[in-house]
């Protein structure tokens, strides 16, 4: 089963539901990811100006430290790597297939778009408290 290339999205989704229930019951933690990006940004900024970070409202609310969610997000990377390796679907790729079909093999254009999209998406996610 672990070596299968893919599972039904219904099965994987239902199993994810069970993981969510177990997490809330055992650790009291609901799934989330975007707060960890604020913590990561604060950790980077602290290297340059710790006094400034200590005074900023949002970094006081969301302190630059590693918590449950921070390790949860890191775990997603490791779990995905394990699943991809087990199923033989790991692939180094700079440009996704759908992007290539529409825009050609343009890794720089893809990198700039991904960076800008990431910045806008994170700003929105934090504003909506998602």
């Amino acid at each position: 089963m672990f070596t299968q290339r893919q599972w039904s999205p219904y099965l994987a989704g239902a199993l994810t539901g069970i993981v969510i229930i177990a997490s809330v019951l055992i650790a009291g933690q609901y799934f989330g990811a975007s707060t960890s990006f604020v913590r990561a940004a604060g950790m980077v900024e602290k290297l340059f100006s710790p006094e400034r970070v200590a005074q900023m409202d949002y970094y006081v609310r969301v302190a630059p430290r590693m918590d449950w969610q921070w390790f949860f997000v890191l775990g997603i990377l490791l779990g995905s790597f394990a699943a991809a390796k087990a199923g033989g679907t790991f692939k180094w790729q700079a440009v996704p297939d759908m992007w290539r079909a529409r825009f050609g093999n343009t890794p720089v254009k893809r990198a700039v778009t991904a960076f800008a999209g990431g910045a806008v998406a994170m700003f929105g996610a934090r504003m909506a408290d998602g």
Binding site: Q4, Q6, W7, S8, P9, A12, G13, L15, T16, V19, A22, S23, A27, Q29, F31, F71, F72, V73, L74, G75, I76, L77, L78, G79, S80, F81, A82, A83, A84, G87, T89
Partner: peptide, 13 residues
Amino acid sequence: TGVLFGFLLQKAT
């Protein structure tokens, strides 16, 4: 928890 979730996300493609 993250490892389990990441594993399932990857298998679901």
